[in-house]
Design a protein around this nucleic acid. Sequence first.
DNA 1: TATTGTTATACTCTATAACTATA
DNA 2: TATAGTTATAGAGTATAACAATA
Lengths: 155, 155
Amino acid sequence: MEPSKKSEQFIAADAGLRRFLGYRLKRAYNTLRSDMLVRLEPLGLRITTFSALLLIVHNPGLRQSALASALDIKTSNMVAIIDDLESRGWIKRKPVPTDRRALALFATAVGKSTCKKAEALAFENEETLLNNLTDAELNTLSTLLEKIESSAEKL
Amino acid sequence: MEPSKKSEQFIAADAGLRRFLGYRLKRAYNTLRSDMLVRLEPLGLRITTFSALLLIVHNPGLRQSALASALDIKTSNMVAIIDDLESRGWIKRKPVPTDRRALALFATAVGKSTCKKAEALAFENEETLLNNLTDAELNTLSTLLEKIESSAEKL
DNA sequence: TATTGTTATACTCTATAACTATA
DNA sequence: TATAGTTATAGAGTATAACAATA
């Protein structure tokens, strides 16, 4: 099939950047990201709030600091995310008896059902945008991405 | 080798998100990105300004709109990036005789040498953080990432 | 009418410093 | 002393709307 003129021009212009895997990673991520934003918007979720909600649902009692660390988000930036989820009635902060500094996070029933819907949207997102790839390719990709992440632990 | 307690806790907490390739893509990209930011900083470049400078060096006479389109950046957001590069003396905007609305972009000698240094840093970045992966794996990864990008063209 | 570059604006994500209350 | 959560703030990326000059 003939590539469109737009594609040709596109490829010519950024060829110098396509040598870099970081550039390709960013563009591939943005492909998934922009579609995901559109899907989540009607639920009142963004990618960060969805990620936080999902981890709270899957890890009841998770502390804010542990959540921040898992998502690689500063605790100072976590506050607004938790505020958002709590103000929508999806999660609750509860004091931890054994450590009065800490707050444990629990999803409400509505939060759990919202999360379930969002997870379904996330699967749709990937089914739609990754349907070019076989299951074997997806597994390979996962493994290679994990390798990149783990290579940073040495730094 | 025993995984550290921190790694164990980390893996447990975000397991629910690791099913999603988008999450893995973001984390792998962030691994490269944060190291790259540190490397570019002494040159006075960020990732966006580096990308723009590189494309201008490799495509003399490129117009702002074509650059914005290649990088998937709005033309309104491109202005500040070009301003930055021009104020540092690395590029020049020149009028296009055949279209008096347009501005063509050219790198100066200093801009070209800065770009060369930055490209070397980008190669170092990837050599360091991708040294876990074989050449074959890197090729596979490139191909799969390109597939994801191209799958979005159907939308 | 449409396009190029621009300004203005707003929202999100990210990073740092400083604070409080606990441990 | 160190940690958990918070506030304030600033930088950077991204999105939309509107405009002047030109096609």
